[in-house]
Each structure stands twice: as C-alpha cells, then as structure tokens.
Design a protein around this nucleic acid. Structure first.
Ligand SMILES: Nc1ncnc2c1ncn2[C@@H]1O[C@H](COP(=O)(O)OP(=O)(O)OP(=O)(O)O)[C@@H](O)[C@H]1O
Length: 645
DNA sequence: CGCTTCTTCGTTTTT
DNA sequence: CGAAGAAGCG
C-alpha cells in the first residue's frame, strides 16, 4: 500500500473545521460561504473515519452535480492512503442506479432497465400523445418538451399537477386531466419497457427506502456514515433519500451554502437547508467565515455582490491570503471585441506562466461562449467546453447506442423505435407493429423475422438486423466486442443517412475507446447516460485526453471548482441576469447567487466583462442593455474593481 | 412512407 | 430565429 505522510489535522484545519471533522457520530450541518473549506472538511472527515477503522465502503459521499461529485471523490481519494479511494459515492443519480440494479425487482421492475435521457423521454411522450389523439388543430395541448417539463417539476418539487400547471403553465390548466392521463401512460410505458428516466432513479429509490423496511435497514446499515456536499442544491426527494439512508444511525453530515443555491428550477430551495436543524434539533452546527481560496480584493467584491441578496444566512467572509489584485472590469465595445480581449488576456496569463488548466471562462448559458470558441480556435488555443451539444447527444452516437441498448434490454421500446426507423420503408406505424411483437408478445429478436414482416420490402433489412444482434448477443461479450460488431452493422446505414458520414466515423471510433474501459454493457450504458463524456462534441477528436486546457463552462457546472484566473463574460442585463428572470423576484435573487458562485471560483485573478453592446439571441431580444444590474447595485464598484480597456 | 410546405410557439441552468 | 408540428401530395 502506498504510504502518504500522516495527516496533521490540527495543522491543516482551523478549529471549527477540526471540530466538524472529529465529531463522527450524530447529525451535523456545516453552513458556510464559498471557499471556506466545506468540501475540505468532508474529505478530511473521510480520512479521519478511515483512520479510526471505519471501513471505507461504509462511508457514503453524495452530491447533486457530476462535476462537484467528481471533485469531491477525487479529493477524498488523495487522502491518507489507498483505502480512501474505496469510499462509496458520486451523484445521487449514480448511487440510485447502483442500488436499483439490485433492488428494482422489489417493486416489479426489471433490473436490466435502461436509462433514458431527456430526448428519449420526449419521444416516448410524443408516441403516447399521438396514440391518445390529444392534439387537435384548435386545441392548445402542451408539446412534448413542455409535457416532460411538467412531469419533472411535479416529481422534483413534490407539488401536484394542478399546482404546477397553475403556477408555471396557466395556459394549459384546462388540460389538467389529459396531462395526468399522459403522465399515467408514460409511467406505464416505462415499466412495460423497463426504462427509467433521470427522475425515476430518485423516485424509485425514495420509494424503495420508504416502503421496504428490510431494504431500508440494510442500506442504512451498509452506509454508516452519510455525507452530502452542496446540500443547498438537493431537492425534497434527494433530501428524503439522504434522511432515509441515515435512519438507522443518524450519522449524517451535510454541508452547504444558502448563498450558492442555484438549482431552484429543479426543486431545490435554499431555505431547505434550514430544515435540517429542525429535523435534527440536536445536530452540531458549524459556521465558517475564513475563506482560503481567494485573495482579499476578490473577496471584498464577492462580499459586496452577495450583500445585496434579500435573504441570506452566511456572513461576510475574510481572507488572509497575501497580496492579490483587484478584479478587472472590462467594457469591450461589443461581444466580438470581448472575445478578442479575453483571448488576448489569456495569452498574457499563459505568458506569465499560468497553466492553461488554471484558467476558466464562465457564462450563464452554453451558447454565450460561441464567439469566443471561434476566436480561440482561430488562435490555436485548446479548450474544454462543458455544456452544449454533447458527444452522446449526436444522432449517429444515439443510433449506435440504441443498438447496444436493445442488446442489454430487449424491451427498450424507444431504442427499438429509433433503430427501426433507420430502415427504409419503416415508419411510425410499422415500427409500432414490430415493437408490439418484440415486447408486447414477448417474442424478442425472433419477431424481426416473423412472416408478417419478412415478406415486406424491408424484410431483408430486418433479417440482417436480427443476425447482427444475435451474433453479438452471445453471453459474456465484452462491451468492446459488442460496440465493434454493431458498428460494422451500423456503418453502412450511417453512410447512407448522413452526407458527412466520414466525419462521424471518428466519433464511432471514440465510442470503442470508451467501451474499452468497461467490463459490462450495463455499466457502459448507465455511465454514458448518467456521466457522459461531458466535453462537447467539437473538441473531442482534436484534443488528447488529460491535456492541460482552458476551461469554458456554464456557471452551473463550475460549482465547487476553483481556478487561478477566472473570466466572467456577458455580464449584461438579459444575459446575467437572464431576461427570463427579470420579473420574478425569486428568480432574480437566484441570478445574483449565480453571479456570486461564478465570482467566488477565482483564486488570484478575476475578470468581469460587460460588453457595451450585445445583440441578444437576434429575435427574442428584449431589454438586453447595459451592464448587469448586479454590478450597478454595488455602491463601491469603482473602488472594488479596476477599470481596464 | 417519406417528402415538402405552411404555421405556431417558446426561448436557461442539470441529472 | 429555429424547432416542432400539422397537413397534404405522390
Ligand atoms: N484550513 C485550511 N487551510 C488551508 N487551506 C484550506 C483550508 N480550508 C480550505 N482550504 C482550501 O481552500 C480552498 C476552498 O476549499 P473548499 O473547496 O473545500 O471550499 P468549499 O467551502 O467547499 O467551497 P465552495 O462552497 O465554493 O465549493 C481549497 O483549495 C482548500 O484546499
């Protein structure tokens, strides 16, 4: 076992952190501002537990976002010795997936379920909507994306359909009954076809814990120490899961910052964090005020940003890090000049020896970096972009994945639908008939060569499909073998379908690379949905993995991370805050917190860029105007920042 | 079934 | 403005 120097807890932690780390029994809440060492407290606590003989597998670390989960698990793994790499954890969704693979049969669900992403969910809902004949020319029925949104809102907020419709979709409140009907059919479909959407993972896990006492006891006893990072981002469903997991021992430590709550759109409420002490009146509450990430000039600005929030628990932070430069305030003439300016500044930082991986550009919405990306490419600067069209969302990858999915779960109706529509001569009607035989009549692959279909003009193609699937489907195939074989089947189809097939072939090849890291098809498929390679498609082929590159990220995805130098671009009313939030107080408050999260990512350098003119999304372009109101409202902006051209 | 043409509608963030 | 959906034709 690799030896690392013993941890000196008293040296590495301040007294309050130390108390939180060494209090290992019972409930506790750490509520503290950005960069005060909340995650550090958690990972030291992991080491402390393991050092005292707690088995690492019984320590469970959970959080909502993938990036924060990765960061948390990565930091935990570097502690103490190799044992710390064995702690369980990740996102709530990935944990739910693991548990449900084992316990789904408890509620009559197949363990070999596949996980559907948003676009699959929309496709299913669309099928149902057509089948139920709910669209009419004079009828204003929600489109598929709205329906899926509504369903998800209901699940994540715990509100009723009635309430969600009234509050968020008043234009559809007449359709309550029909919407509920679609929802019921959607649920039935998912059970019949053994598929779960993202929300189902949480719903089913919560239900399992709530209703199956023996399972709850067992899981709770398996995970004697439950810890949740970024607790302000958990919604009621996730909070319930955490509480149930701790039900047998009450060893639950949660850390969070109400000022960084930015996921209300999926049911998180920053006030929820205050429910913890209500539920556990005897809990230890730790607050932290010293920031160890940023220099004082940056902190003075971020304190000023959050000071304008209406409601907040956390206090002013201070830093003892030496030196530091004032945040730079840029006012480029337009968005193109902004991109040029940022590239220029990045070059300067690189010249000064700042590593590329220590530089990040943050923004509100994925498309805000489009211009900058062009400029960076032109300048030969490599970058990683988080957000935007992902590798697994491109049509050809989805096609190939559909083939893998039916191999793993032959009942997966959406996957079949996608595969069948690729065949010339098969449209929605034939596809449904064929699927009815495969799944409904339980015939499996054999249905593909059933005499009804064999004599139709696409009979030969169905036969070839069956042969391809059966050839791979031998027990014990490795994911690599499966992907390679199905790629041989799919490639000619792709070449016929897409003009730019020669480019797409590279992506299929990267899928083989990815598959190489897996030993089971289940793990490959689950990961590709739950933790897909999040790099946008564009950069994939060019960039060698692990290379040190500039990061472009949405603010949401930057949560929990830190960089030496951070740029926040498009600090313009209409972008940040998003014009969508202008007229809702709560949303505006959340937009401010978003700005706060972005600014608190910076260790040494912070650049704020507010272009003087910014054309919005061309058509829907209201109120995009001056610098962000969150800059305006800061009284001492002039002294807190350095204006540079 | 697969194609074209016309109309309508919503617009952000994540798993 | 662009995507989704309705409608119509061969
Ligand atoms: N007591 C300490 N001594 C030295 N460095 C510390 C201490 N506490 C935290 N740090 C460092 O400060 C930085 C921020 O810590 P950490 O990421 O744990 O904060 P956080 O509270 O989780 O922040 P956020 O809420 O913004 O994600 C890290 O680089 C961490 O190593």
């Amino acid at each position: 076992m690799e030896r690392r120097p013993a941890i000196d807890y008293e040296k590495d932690l301040n007294p309050r952190q130390l108390q939180a780390v060494t209090t290992i029994e019972g409930p506790q809440l750490v509520i503290a501002g950005a960069g005060t060492g909340k995650t550090r407290t958690l990972v030291y606590r992991v080491a402390y537990l393991v050092e005292r003989g707690v088995s690492p597998e019984s320590v469970l670390l959970l959080t909502f976002t993938r990036k924060a989960a990765q960061e948390m698990m990565r930091r935990a793994a570097t502690m103490l010795d190799a044992r710390c790499a064995l702690v369980t954890g990740g996102t709530f969704h990935s944990f739910a997936n693991l548990v449900l693979r084992r316990y789904a049969p408890e509620f009559d669900f197949s363990s070999r379920f596949t996980i559907v992403d948003r676009s699959d969910a929309e496709d299913i809902v669309n099928l149902i909507r057509t089948e139920l004949g709910l669209q009419g020319k004079d009828r204003r029925f929600p489109r598929k994306s709205a329906l899926v949104n509504i369903f998800s809102r209901v699940v994540n907020t715990g509100k009723s359909y009635e309430q969600v419709l009234e509050e968020e979709y008043p234009q559809f409140s007449d359709e309550l009954e029909a919407i509920a009907q679609v929802a019921a059919a959607y649920t039935a479909y998912k059970q019949r076809h053994a598929v779960m959407d993202y929300d189902d993972l949480l719903v089913h896990l919560a239900r399992l814990l709530r209703e199956k006492d023996t399972v709850r006891k067992r899981l709770s006893n398996d995970h004697r120490y439950v810890m949740v990072d970024e607790f302000q981002d958990t919604n009621p469903l996730q909070a319930e899961i955490a509480y149930q997991l701790a039900s047998e021992h009450r060893n639950i430590a949660v850390v969070g910052d109400d000022a960084q709550s930015i996921y209300s759109f999926r049911g998180a409420d920053f006030r929820n964090i205050m429910d913890f002490p209500k539920r556990f009146p005897d809990c230890l509450i730790t607050t932290l005020e010293q920031n160890y990430r940023s220099t004082q000039p940056i902190l003075s600005l971020t304190n000023a940003i959050i000071a304008n929030a209406r409601e907040k628990f956390t206090k002013q932070l201070f830093s003892q890090l030496p030196g530091g430069r004032k945040p730079v305030y840029l006012r480029p003439a337009g968005t193109e000049q902004q991109a040029v300016r940022v590239v220029q500044e990045i070059r300067r930082l690189r010249g000064d020896g700042v590593a590329a991986g220590e530089i990040a550009v943050l923004f509100r919405a994925a498309w805000h970096s489009n211009e900058l990306e062009v400029m960076l490419k032109r300048g030969g600067i490599e970058f990683i972009k988080y957000g935007g069209l992902k590798f697994v969302e491109s049509a050809h990858i989805k096609d190939l994945l559909a083939l893998l999915r039916v191999l793993f779960n032959p009942r997966d109706g959406v996957a079949w639908y996608r595969i069948l529509l690729l065949i010339e001569g098969i449209g929605p009607t034939s596809a449904k008939q064929i699927i009815a035989r495969i799944v409904g009549a339980g015939e499996g692959f054999e249905a593909l060569t059933h005499k009804t279909f064999a004599k139709r003009k696409y009979g030969k193609d169905l036969g070839a499909l069956r042969a391809a699937l059966e050839q791979v489907g031998e027990p014990g195939v490795t994911p690599t073998t499966a992907v390679t074989a199905l790629m041989d089947h799919y490639r000619p189809i792709m070449e016929q379908k897409y003009d730019d097939a020669h480019k797409r072939v590279n992506d299929l090849a990267s899928l083989i690379q990815i598959a190489d890291n897996y030993t089971s098809l289940e793990a490959l498929l689950s990961d590709l949905t739950l933790e897909p390679p999040e790099q946008a498609l564009a950069g994939r082929a060019a960039a060698s993995d692990g290379a040190d590159r500039i990061v472009l990220s949405t603010i949401h995805s930057a949560k929990g991370l830190e960089w030496h130098s951070v740029f926040i671009i498009h600090l313009v009313d209409g972008y940040l805050p998003s014009s969508y939030a202008f007229y809702k107080t709560d949303s505006l408050e959340e937009e401010r917190r978003l700005f706060y999260v972005a600014a608190t990512r910076a260790k040494e350098n912070l650049y704020l860029s507010a272009p003087q003119t910014a054309s919005g999304n061309s058509f829907y372009n209201p109120d995009i105007g001056g610098p962000s109101r969150f800059l305006h409202e800061i009284q001492d902006l002039k002294t807190l920042t350095k204006r540079v051209n």
